[in-house]
Amino acid sequence: MKIAMIGASGFIGTRILELLCKESAKYDCKNIDLAPSLSFNNITTIGDVRNQHQMDSELHGFDLVVLLAAQHRDDVTPTQLYYDTNIGGMEVTLNAMEKNGIKRIIFFSSVAIYGLNKDCPNENSPADPFNHYGKSKWQAEQLLAKWHKSHPDWNINIIRPTVVFGEYNRGNVYNLLKQISSGRFLMIGKGNNKKSMAYVGNIAAFVKYIIENITTGYNVFNYVDKPDINMNQLVSIISQTLDKHIPAIHAPYRLAMLMGYCIDAFAKLTNRKTTISSARIKKFCATTEFNSDKAHSSGFNAPYNLNEGLMRTIKHEFKTQSSN
Rank of each mutant, 00 (worst) to 15 (best):
M197R: 13
I16S: 05
D84Q: 03
S292K: 02
G191L: 10
G13N: 06
P129H: 06
A35F: 14
M231N: 14
H60C: 13
K244T: 09
E317Y: 13
N222Y: 04
S182L: 03
F185T: 05
A8V: 09
L20N: 00
I43E: 03
L68V: 05
F62Y: 15
G134S: 08
N222V: 01
T288I: 07
G191P: 12
Q321A: 07
S125I: 10
P252Y: 08
Y253S: 15
H316Y: 15
Y27D: 03
K149P: 00
A35E: 12
Q233I: 02
N42R: 05
N169R: 06
V207C: 10
P126W: 09
A69F: 01
P152E: 10
T287Q: 13
S150N: 06
I229E: 07
Q142Y: 02
V92R: 00
P247R: 00
T287V: 07
R104Y: 00
R15I: 01
A251K: 10
V220W: 03
D264V: 05
K319T: 02
C262V: 14
R280C: 04
Y174K: 11
L34A: 07
L177N: 05
Y199A: 00
T215M: 03
H72E: 04
T274P: 04
K273Q: 11
I249C: 06
A279L: 10
N169Q: 08
D56Y: 15
N230I: 12
Y253M: 12
L64R: 11
S9H: 08
V163H: 13
W147C: 07
D128I: 02
D56I: 10
W138F: 09
I249V: 13
I276T: 08
I210S: 00
K283A: 07
N51T: 09
N305V: 09
G201S: 11
P227N: 09
I214P: 01
Q139M: 10
C120D: 14
K99D: 02
T14H: 01
A267T: 12
C21N: 13
V65L: 05
R50S: 11
F130H: 09
I203L: 08
P78Q: 00
F185D: 03
N100P: 01
S277C: 08
R312D: 10
V173T: 13
G189R: 05
C285V: 05
Y174R: 13
